[in-house]
Design a protein around this nucleic acid. Structure first.
Lengths: 238, 238
DNA sequence: GTCTATAACCGGATAGAC
DNA sequence: GTCTATCCGGTTATAGAC
């Protein structure tokens, strides 16, 4: 039986020695993956670098994917720190969104090499790593909360019921950017940054436009759609 | 050196024997994958079922992914047949899109279990199963061509440069529906059908709205964005 | 009971003989 | 074109060390 890798508190019931071994494995995995890419970072080499055995690596992590995925929570925390300054000062919706998204890209930049592994894991329908799954609910809510703070601190006037939906929409947008980023092979993922610079003003325009009377109808149609997409508690699809 | 698997014409310069061997491999791969899922459909078993050797399978297909990718082409051809009737008769954009999307869901329904298995593999950035990968280029272009036909046969007046972008946008929409469908566990994937019924009128509204003068600005902004997203031939990201 | 190691299994991919 | 033999790396079984 292996040790659970994903819990809120930092693995409290592990021996000191165990904690160190586990940590060395994570560091080795991150380093090696960035050096040679995910595919060529073999478990044997990771274990060797961590100064332990292959079998022992599997004692701590159920799979190579899980090992590499351990950075997920870490990056969110770094992201929150990274965009605290903008959220504290800038009061325009556009500026705040730009700041948050730039901070996101800056935070995850070092990890582009093994992003694919994360994405693969996340793609699995039943995987707890899937950002849409029930299991990742807490993590997702934390991420959405960040966007809620973004919206709440904006001085723009946004219709109330729209402002309620907006954080989730922005989170979806942010997931889309991540999807693009994962596939982005340009140096330093410049294209992803360009995408953000270009889409953020557009989104700001759309949010402004969505408050106009003429477009309220379409906006409400979209909101109704989003509501109908939420998974029902028990049955009756629709 | 192995034989190129993805070309428009049905592999013309192959020996008769070769053509049959290749075909047996494809059939075996699809059957076995539907029976036990992608991961557990081993190349050894596929080759055995096709009455040939493991090494020979790799003579025809550069990887397991390429072999199974032939599924895309097959379903696309079935889809084209399935929506020919609507496209020949209905002249409204809304009706044509609805017909095409309904036909799509009907075509892929038998493969739902199988597709869930494929999806995980398809998430891999470099996987030939990834619909955005180079390997899927020809198939993707054919699919977009279908949406182009959809647009071209509509009697609605759509600004020319918008009509040029629209097929690709519709293809993206269609990919989004597929993504939803893969995760859809409702009986008969009813929720996916409901999604189509609800989104198609919305898209029709949006396409109509996008032709209004007030919104031309935003539409052009979006079009510029899409252009900048296209992968460049060689370098200089933008 | 917690941790570590070695040996083997399995399946995708390749080399090279025929 | 087709095969057999082999490599390689993720994963598992399992025996022991602390």
């Amino acid at each position: 039986m292996s040790i659970d890798t994903q819990r809120g508190d930092p693995a409290p019931r592990l021996t000191e020695k165990a904690r160190k071994t586990r940590s060395r494995l994570v560091v080795a995995a991150l380093q090696l993956t960035q050096e040679v890419g995910y595919e060529r970072a073999t478990m044997r080499e990771i274990a060797k670098r961590a100064g332990t055995s292959l079998g022992n690596a599997y004692y701590y992590f159920p799979s190579k994917g899980h090992l590499v995925q351990s950075f997920y929570r870490r990056t969110h925390e770094e992201h929150v720190v990274g965009c605290a300054a903008v959220l504290a000062t800038d009061r325009t919706f556009r500026g705040r969104l730009l700041g948050v998204m730039r901070a996101k890209l800056a935070t995850i930049r070092p990890y582009h090499g093994f992003s694919m592994a994360l994405f693969r894991a996340a793609a699995d329908t039943d995987s707890p790593l899937n950002p849409f799954s029930d299991a990742s609910g807490p993590t997702r809510r934390e991420a959405i909360a960040l966007f809620a703070e973004l919206v709440a601190g904006s001085r723009e006037r946004i219709p109330v019921e729209f402002a309620e939906e907006l954080p989730e929409l922005l989170w979806l947008y942010h997931m889309g950017v991540l999807l693009f980023w994962i596939h982005d092979k340009s140096p330093q993922q410049q294209r992803s940054l360009a995408l953000v610079e270009q889409t953020v003003p557009l989104i700001a325009s759309l949010v402004a436009a969505a408050s106009l009377p003429g477009l309220g109808a379409i906006r409400k149609q979209i909101q109704a759609l989003l509501h109908s997409l939420r998974p029902e508690p028990k049955a009756a699809p629709g």
